[in-house]
């Protein structure tokens, strides 16, 4: 926040889209607290260095590519951040072809030669598995519902692979159905809810069946969020370190716009933020 000690001076604006750009598909800023926190801290890091940071929301993946073409046509931005980027990512390929510098949030094996913050999903999955072991949960139920369900599926799959046969994805993730599944599960059971809102509803439903949380069943949220920290009980969550990752992406993109060499920085490892619910 040292806006006043910045020495880069007032950025010059012309017709062109200068600064750092990011395109988001769909309503993720409102729906996904992890993305929202990441984009927020990324914007702070970039703007504090004196560069404008623009995030644009579009409806679909095709529109995202159209935006890059349009930005290129009107004088390209200094750099574009792509989150998350997959192997053979079409967006990264296009940006590279348009000679727009890219910084990606991706995995080690993907996009060699592209500046990136690199996620270690295996380590995150290990953390989650170790936490569930330490707490002695015997049956782990996954309730795929809510905003978190569609995102980070790699991470989720690898976490579940490490939990072996103990994890069961529930077909019916309504709170009442989850509470029934808990009643039938091997105690003590843990429920991994897709997000904090789902976790709150599931805790209420479990308590309505006369069981206690976390005594009879632990409830975790797949996403950490403000709600996890402020609900009653507070909710144990997988902390994906979104704010720090956003800052790191900011550092990386500033290095790229300053003409620095390519770099790949490891993202801080996700971990379990242990609170009252599990």
């Amino acid at each position: 926040m040292r806006a006043r000690s910045v020495s880069r001076g007032v950025p010059h604006y012309g017709e062109q889209m200068n600064g750092v750009g990011l395109v988001l598909v769909g309503d993720v800023l409102a729906a996904d607290p992890v993305i929202s926190a990441l984009v927020h801290s990324l914007g702070e890091a970039v703007s504090e260095a004196g560069l404008p940071f623009l995030a644009r929301v579009v409806d679909d993946a095709d529109s995202e590519l159209d935006v890059y073409h349009a930005w290129h046509a009107s004088g390209a931005p200094d750099a574009v951040v792509v989150i998350p980027a997959e192997a053979d990512d079409a967006r990264v390929a296009l940006l590279t072809r348009l000679r727009i510098p890219v910084v990606a949030l991706t995995h080690e094996e993907h996009l060699p030669g592209v500046s990136a913050v690199v996620l270690d999903d295996d380590a995150a999955a290990d953390e989650l598995a170790a936490f569930l072991d330490r707490r002695g949960y015997r049956d782990v139920l996954y309730a795929p519902d809510g905003a978190g369900a569609s995102d980070a599926s790699d991470l989720r799959d690898s976490a579940f692979a490490r939990l072996g046969g103990r994890v069961r994805a529930l077909d019916d993730a309504t709170p009442q159905a989850v509470a029934r599944a808990v009643a039938e599960a091997v105690a003590p059971a843990a429920v991994v809810a897709a997000d904090a809102t789902a976790a709150v509803a599931i805790i209420a439903a479990i308590r309505e069946t006369g069981r206690s949380v976390p005594g009879d069943a632990g409830v975790l949220s797949w996403n950490d969020s403000l709600l996890c920290r402020t609900s009653d009980p507070t909710i144990t969550a997988l902390d994906r370190r979104a704010t720090e990752i956003g800052r790191l992406l900011g550092e990386c993109v500033l290095r790229v716009t300053a003409g620095g060499e390519l770099g790949r920085l490891p993202a801080p490892r996700a971990g379990v933020a242990a609170r009252e619910s599990a």
Partner: peptide
């Protein structure tokens, strides 16, 4: 002080973009 934040919404109130720049500072 710390940042200027611009939010653009469409007529339905949906966010279509946000720009963050240096704060008003000094």
């Amino acid at each position: 002080d710390a940042h200027l934040t611009y939010a653009v919404t469409d007529l339905g109130g949906r966010l279509v973009g946000r720009l963050v720049t240096r704060g008003t500072g000094q």
